[in-house]
Design a binder for these strands. Sequence first.
RNA 1: GCUGAGGUAGCCUAGCCCGGGAAGGCGCCAGCCUUGAAAGCUGGUGGCGGCAACGCCACGGGAGUUCAAAUCUCCCCCUCAGCGCCA
Length: 444
Amino acid sequence: MSALSTIRSRPEDLKRAIALRNKPYPDVDALVTLDTECRQLAGAVNALRAKRNEQAHKLADAKKAGGAVDAAVSRELGELRDTIAADEAKLQKCESERDALLLLFPQIPHPTVPVGKDGTENVVVREVPSTVRTIPEPKPHFVLGPELNILDTERGAKVSGEGFYFLVGDGARLEMALITFMRETHRKAGYTELLPPILISSASMTGTGQLPKFAEDSYKTVLDDLWLAPTAEVPLTNLYRDEVLLGTDLPLKVMAFTPCFRREAGGHGVETRGIARVHQFNKVELVNFVHPNSSYDQLETLLSEAEAIVQALGLRYRIFNLCTGDLPDKAAKCYDIELWAPGAARWLEVSSVSNFEDYQSTRAGIRYRETQAAKPEFVHTLNGSGTALPRLMVAVMETWQTSPGRIEVPPVLRPYLGGQTHLEPTPFVGERELGRGRRGWNAG
RNA sequence: GCUGAGGUAGCCUAGCCCGGGAAGGCGCCAGCCUUGAAAGCUGGUGGCGGCAACGCCACGGGAGUUCAAAUCUCCCCCUCAGCGCCA
């Protein structure tokens, strides 16, 4: 949603933005017409209510002076009430239609966003090579992981279904090390760490733009109006929903490590092999509440904060400036960071760094006041993955195969793994493994 | 889950029993005063519409009664306390 005032004052800008996005959206003129209608209705209702109030006050004054209530006036006011009620119903219908329509409109892309029809026209900002000497033919994680028994997708599918997995032994420890490494890095960059709720109300899901459009992408609980957070962006951004922040609070930087849940309906095939696309994953998320004047400077800072992670791990990566045709509705500008997975020979999106401007703050009512006497203004919200774990794990496992069948621990992570230099295999457990020529270390 | 007490502007509070233009304080802003500041005094400090004067809306949300609802009735949400259950 762009703010209603933008649509009123600059409908042409919105039209142009929509055209650039190369996707179908509701008609801007229809919205403007609807809005005009609402305002006319509001004016009419307003006048009627003024008349009613004036009469009712006279009646109240008369009664206070000791007189009786005039039956004729009373009846007249009763009729007026019914007229007003009918008009109010029309107004309410008009406004709810307008507001529902408004929620469907995308944010206006920033001038520095390249124009393009779809993802193929995203612009590479930079590509950075790996600093790791990987063996000639590294195995993909979905081969190496099960071989070392640090990743178990079969039992994940048994327990929860397709798209769920277990990390085992040093696999789990590597992920926890990455998480702690990222949390510490971001903390040093000035982030306040939060452990947020991950069951989310519909109001909060609407506030960040997950609803109404992406309801089918999220999991919802059966007995309560609660959704499983698809990203920590939702609780983090809603932290200050319906609040007025102080000008001196900004920029406000918060982060959280949480599991994320996505239905990923319809996403099957080669790309889902392994853990590159799953229903539940962990992520460290960064959210910034920023003064509108500095949100684009802050976007670059945020990008560098996410980039610092992949850089420290020596991974090959590239950064895209998403073109208008690929830009998410809620974003005015968005960078994607992709990691190279040498085993699977694929690029994997591991972080999305966006400036939403006031898209979320208008929906969620997050404002700030420059001074106590000033009017509250909407903040700009930014977020960035810092970063998503499964794809980071994939890139680390595949890149750090410095000897055949072995995974080295990146030096920056060793403090979090007791100084360990390589991941150790986990013993196999159970009779099912015997048939595959595998057996646990304790067997026989 | 049960019982009770609550939810009023950025914050704190009065009004509710007994229906009739939401009072006051704090904080903040401006003006006056002052060499400057503080204190003091005056005014302003929720949203929408309007150039304006002004009008309307807003007392957790929704419905109802009534000429008229912060106030009465019903439903729902949330907070706190006690009890119950529970990792």
